[in-house]
Design a binder for these strands. Structure first.
Ligand SMILES: NC(=O)c1ccc[n+]([C@@H]2O[C@H](COP(=O)([O-])OP(=O)(O)OC[C@H]3O[C@@H](n4cnc5c(N)ncnc54)[C@H](O)[C@@H]3O)[C@@H](O)[C@H]2O)c1
Ligand SMILES: NC(=O)c1ccc[n+]([C@@H]2O[C@H](COP(=O)([O-])OP(=O)(O)OC[C@H]3O[C@@H](n4cnc5c(N)ncnc54)[C@H](O)[C@@H]3O)[C@@H](O)[C@H]2O)c1
Lengths: 213, 213
DNA sequence: CAGAGTTTGTGAAAGCGTTCACAAACAAAC
DNA sequence: GTTTGTTTGTGAACGCTTTCACAAACTCTG
């Protein structure tokens, strides 16, 4: 198989979301052109992305919506439910915990950890917030595969080291910091400050040199 | 000036964050090599990124930390404080509202809007949650420049249309949906579901073909 | 069932961003 | 003040991703 780039995977996720909306609306066929316009890319890009994984379309007709949903879910590893732990029961952690879409896509939060003694023992929707000390044991017991790190930046690397030692190989990080992990462990960082600064840059630029789209 | 790519701006934000940490620790000089290793890139990349905006370093020595902080803040448009509105006073909205780092970097949330009558009128840290109906007037009155959209996906495009009509030109979007805006308006979307699916893809791939880093 | 009209899949070309490599510039030591 | 060592700034090479363009494959209509 050809190598698949990060941007391609991101677009596949976007296509999948659109296709699920289309399936909801009982549309059964879609062209690369339509998919492209709805996802803000080009038809050629859509076809190239999909062609990396097989040939799913029918010439002259387009793609079968239900089939492509199934294929994309398989490609993205969304056929199984993932067991997820949340480390850091603060503001972002609470928001994520309550976010139904995560569960809907098959990401089940099955453990919550925090160091704060006032938080440990709280029941979150039936799930007890665990003390940070017993983390390794709980991760093991519940077969956790993915961790969401929502602790303050200076605590993040320490938490990640423990997670990795405990066998976690996928981490979604909200702390605005660079994390070091060994090869074989995948970290995705969601950095909102960075996006805000991107906006700041773009807006100041427009003020300085108008018309530079 | 040469054209500046998105990834470059992202890295400049990362450099700035590191430099502020170094300044805090009273380090006064840093090499591209050091900056690179701390931000997970290469020395050549650091130098190329910076060289797009001027020549800030001293050969044989490196970069002055305080000077580079000042320069990067100017480049990124962070010398002023931005007036920000939050649309959608839900879980994500609340988390962002309480997030001190935003204010610290000069993003001041000066208006909060929601449609939910039980939320309208609430005081959030002294700021009254406004009804969605008066949005345009409040945006105008308070000179809002950037909006954070944290409403359900199906409401997002409608909100954005109103924001754009009201003159807002920078939007940070948390709704997992494609937003259409006219040229001249900048939208950055933070899509956590997408990142999770990236993890899912990477992890399933490793299971299927181990050793494919 | 033939012909007109679509739409895919994919090599080839173009466009971008990253990495390389090195001369030029400076610091520091003696 | 000269030498040695370090680090920058940048053109050129490289590699990766996107876009182009079109033959092949299929649908649909009459
Ligand atoms: N709040 C936001 O909107 C927002 C936005 C962007 C990024 N972030 C980042 O997300 C992270 C969390 O932010 P927050 O606003 O939720 O902070 P918070 O202070 O509300 O929550 C952090 C939680 O982590 C816990 N914690 C601290 N050290 C821990 C450890 N070693 N193990 C387990 N738990 C630990 C704390 O007890 C606390 O409950 C931070 O890194 C922050 O920079 C937050
Ligand atoms: N909670 C999360 O962790 C999370 C994670 C990723 C993405 N998101 C996305 O962020 C958005 C908000 O999520 P949430 O969890 O905070 O939802 P939420 O339901 O807690 O909050 C949404 C708020 O928006 C308000 N609202 C609805 N329509 C509005 C309108 N037209 N104008 C103004 N306010 C309006 C609602 O009254 C509610 O208070 C959603 O698009 C969601 O998909 C949330």
């Amino acid at each position: 198989m050809k190598k698949v780039s990060e941007p391609t995977i991101g677009r596949l996720s976007v296509y999948l979301r659109l296709l699920m909306e289309l399936a909801e609306a009982d549309v059964d066929t879609v062209s690369s052109e339509e998919l492209a316009s709805r996802s803000g890319t080009t038809a050629a890009q859509v076809r190239k992305d999909l062609s990396l994984f097989g040939t799913f379309g029918k010439r002259g007709l387009g793609y079968s919506v239900p089939e492509l949903v199934t294929r994309l879910r398989a490609i993205l590893g969304l056929e199984k439910a993932w067991r997820v732990a949340l480390v850091g029961a603060g503001r972002i952690g609470a928001a994520l915990f309550g976010y139904e879409n995560f569960r809907r896509q098959g990401f089940n939060i099955e453990a919550v950890f925090d160091t704060d003694p006032t938080k440990v023992g709280q029941r979150w929707n039936g799930l007890v917030v665990e003390a940070d000390a017993g983390m390794e044991r709980v991760l093991e017991e519940r077969g956790i595969e993915i961790a969401v790190v929502a602790v303050p930046a200076r605590a993040a690397q320490g938490v990640v080291d423990r997670l990795v030692a405990a066998g976690i190989r996928g981490i979604l990080n909200f702390a605005p910091t660079q994390l070091d992990v060994p090869a074989g462990v995948v970290v995705k960082t969601v950095d909102m400050a960075l996006e805000m600064e991107g906006l700041s840059y773009a807006l100041s630029r427009e003020e300085r040199e108008p018309g530079a789209a």
